[in-house]
Simulated scan of single mutants.
Amino acid sequence: MSAPTTEPVPAATPPPVAPPPVPPQRARLLASPLVWPLLALAVLLAVNVAGNPDFLDVRLQDGHLFGSVIDIIRNSAPVMLVAIGMTLVIATRGIDLSVGAVAAIAASVACVHMAGSPQEGAAATAVLGIAMALAVAVLLGLWNGFLVSVIGIQPIIATLVLLVSGRGLAMLISDGQITTVTNATFEGLASGFVLTLPIAFVLALAVYALAALVTRRTALGMLIEAVGINPEASRLAGVRARTLTWIAYVFCGVCAGLAGLVIAANTNSVNANSLGQWIELDAILAVVIGGTSLAGGRFSLTGTVIGALFIATLSRTITSIGIPAEANYLFKALVVIAVCLLQSPRARAVLRVRRPSPARKAAR
């Protein structure tokens, strides 16, 4: 009998080598919505430093900080104020296109009051003018909130009403003239300093701190997000969606009024036809860059602040590298389009990189 033949046993294939796991700290960092705004801001700063090595230099003079960076944070204050209010409106699945008109109306009320007062330069006159302007801003916010939450008009249409008519109202208040004022207290809103920092920026930070404290240390932020995710479901769950929407529009109106006062104080005058023009574009851009979705729901006030700083730095960068200032809006519009496209579900589906399944990995 012949010896049985033995077939060679094939060597066992080694198990697939799994890729090294991503460290938890790095994964959390990459998943943070603040990473990309901070990276974009760092790139802009690097471009400015490349063109001007002294760009980041900050000096202490007469008890105040001076430098290009200080100018940027001062100029970012109006957009930052409007964007903080816009963040809560967008979180409720809304939009406010009337913030520029509200800023013009508030500035017109304050400047006309001070210019017509016999004690134009008195501090009390400035304080009363500012209080009147903010009261008008509250009323305008109540009007927008009424149209959206009570009447049920789409936010873009409801605020478009005030966007169209608000400029005319501001022109009526100021008699169609450029109103100039001479009041040191009012001027200090834009040119003054506190703790070596510009008052305008400190005011914006105070509004940010107040909004963050109220929305993140209480249940208000969670309720606003619930309204933005599903208004009907939140209403059935007992959340007062109408009241929360109203509050968001009033807060946005107050922020726009403050921004208008800062802009007017920067020139000691108000031109109702141009003050705050297109600031709604900058505010929406800052909110979107900061990671807040235009579809409503979760929002990031910190990201909005970074987005406002990004816009101010972008404006400074465009002029410093020799591009005409008229191209500012073109670049900002392109950024808005790009960010909105990236946030759309279809674009995400196209750009999503699908990981192969474990069975496919083993087969490979």
Score class of each variant (00 low, 15 high):
Leu342Arg: 04
Asn52Trp: 12
Ala40Ser: 13
Gly51Glu: 11
Ala131Trp: 05
Leu314Pro: 07
Asn75Lys: 01
Leu29Glu: 03
Ala347Cys: 10
Ala286Thr: 08
Ser300Asp: 12
Pro118Phe: 11
Val17Trp: 00
Arg354Asp: 15
Val353Asp: 07
Ala256Ser: 06
Met86Lys: 06
Ala272Pro: 15
Arg28Gln: 12
Ile151Arg: 12
Val127Ile: 15
Leu330Tyr: 06
Glu187Ile: 00
Ser320Asn: 15
Arg59Thr: 11
Leu261Ile: 03
Ala31Tyr: 00
Val214Met: 11
Asp57Lys: 10
Gly221Pro: 09
Ala347Gln: 06
Gly129Cys: 04
Leu261Arg: 02
Thr185Val: 04
Phe251Arg: 02
Trp246Asp: 00
Leu41Cys: 04
Val181Gln: 04
Leu39Tyr: 00
Val350Ile: 13
Ala11Thr: 12
Val262Asn: 01
Gly94Asp: 03
Ala18Gly: 03
Ala349His: 15
Ile156Lys: 07
Ser98Asn: 13
Ala110Lys: 08
Arg93Ser: 11
Thr5Leu: 13
Leu244Val: 11
Cys340Gly: 10
Ala11Glu: 07
Leu38Asp: 06
Thr159Phe: 08
Leu139Trp: 13
Leu30Met: 12
Ala110Arg: 01
Ala124Ser: 14
Met114His: 07
Asn273Ser: 12
Leu258Phe: 03
Leu60Trp: 11
Leu44Trp: 09
Thr313Arg: 06
Gly290Met: 08
Gly290Asp: 08
Ile318Cys: 08
Thr185Tyr: 08
Gly141Pro: 13
Leu220Asn: 02
Leu258His: 02
Ser117Cys: 07
Leu88Pro: 02
Ser149Cys: 15
Ala219Lys: 14
Val305Arg: 09
Glu7Ile: 03
Ser293Phe: 01
Ile306Cys: 06
Gly67Glu: 07
Glu120Ala: 15
Ala204Gly: 05
Ile289Asp: 06
Ala103Lys: 08
Gln277Ser: 13
Pro33His: 09
Ala184Gln: 09
Gly168Cys: 04
Ser357Gln: 11
Arg355Asp: 14
Ile289Ala: 01
Ala212Asn: 13
Val288Ile: 14
Gly192Ala: 01
Arg217Val: 10
Leu330Cys: 03
Thr6Pro: 02
Gly192Cys: 06
Leu285Ile: 07
Cys252Leu: 09
Leu41Trp: 04
Thr196Phe: 05
Ala237Met: 13
Pro358Leu: 11
Val250Pro: 09
Ile95Ala: 07
Gly276Ile: 01
Ile229Ser: 14
Val82Trp: 00
Ile105Leu: 09
Gly94Arg: 14
Ala259Trp: 08
Ala338Pro: 07
Gly322Ala: 12
Asn268Ile: 02
Lys332Ala: 09
Thr179Ser: 05
Phe299Arg: 07
Leu341Arg: 05
Ala158Asp: 13
Leu97Ser: 04
Ile72Ala: 01
Phe201Ala: 07
Pro231Gln: 12
Leu41Met: 08
Leu285His: 05
Phe299Met: 05
Ala101Phe: 05
Gly63Phe: 12
Ala27Leu: 11
Ala106Ser: 15
Ser2Cys: 00
Thr87Ala: 13
Thr92Leu: 04
Ala18Glu: 13
Val138His: 10
Ala126Cys: 09
Leu139Ile: 14
Thr243Cys: 01
Ile105Asn: 06
Ala42His: 00
Leu97Gly: 02
Gly188Thr: 02
Leu258Val: 02
Ala91Gly: 02
Pro356Lys: 10
Ala106Tyr: 12
Thr92Ser: 14
Arg26Ile: 07
Ala3Glu: 12
Gln25Cys: 00
Thr159Ser: 15
Leu203Met: 14
Val270Thr: 12
Ser32Val: 01
